[in-house]
Amino acid sequence: MKVIRSKMKTIKKIIIYLILISASISFLLPFAWLIRSSFMDIGQIFTLPPEWIPRPFYWQNYPEALTSVPFGRYTLNTLTILFFVEAGVLITATMSAFAFSRLRWKGRDKIFSILLTSLMVPYVVTLIPTFLLWKALKGIDTFLPLTVPAWFGGGMFNVFLLRQFFLTIPYELDEAAYLDGATPLQVLWKVIIPLSKPAILTVAIFTFMSVWNDLLGPIVYLNDPDKYTLAVGLSTFVGMYTGQWNYLMAASTVMILPPIILFFIGQRFFVQGITLTGLKG
């Protein structure tokens, strides 16, 4: 009886691993396809049946793709936007999350739940009036429409995530600080922020991803090719080089690399942060 049961257990384990491994292979296939194509010359890329090993190993796709359009300029633009957005999000989202979790004031929770409804408003719904506003303010072809909004609370998703984390910190710590004569700002700076580094880092990573990925915003607000971000640059590249799959794959690989590297560096916090957003949906 015992032997049969342990045999059943082994069979079950084997089946689970077989499914997981074959699923993993299918999830990795697009990456393999991307990378092999990025190292092939244009002749080999179209061979049928497809080959997996680049022969010759055509690494020149990378410099050739990256110098054919000003990717350096695009990277600089993206990083400039990123810097101002990160600063705005980290400062104002932390402030708001603190006000909505550690300070008691009348109407706090009511206001918070009203602000949360903004998560359900699609970006395009507000896009047109916002665009007309920036047009009137002469903000088209500047980075202002893409950076200024981040200074207003940094998005409710981030505020929500930080607030969830702040709520787990024992309130006695704040009280002790207040008894020592600290002001709310000092409590935020000296008690809450040092204890919340994982959550703040998660917000920073999420913000990086959203700026790096953003397509609609830059496409609407930036018409001057000198102002393009990487995402917009790559999308014009697609139109320019239809059929030049080796260049497109090399450029895409470069675009994918930073988020992946960042994920591996911050993996621990990232997993924690995602878990946090799922709590008490």
């Binding site: 006000a99 300070l103 004031w105 602000l115 408003v121 207003f152 609370g153």
Partner: peptide, 23 residues
């Protein structure tokens, strides 16, 4: 707490009015 609560939440409240409700 009331004073600082409102001051610190102000960017998010203004942001909601300017970038969500208004548009």
């Amino acid at each position: 707490e009331l004073k600082w609560g409102i001051i610190l939440a102000l960017p998010a409240i203004l942001g909601f009015l300017i970038w969500n409700l208004g548009p």
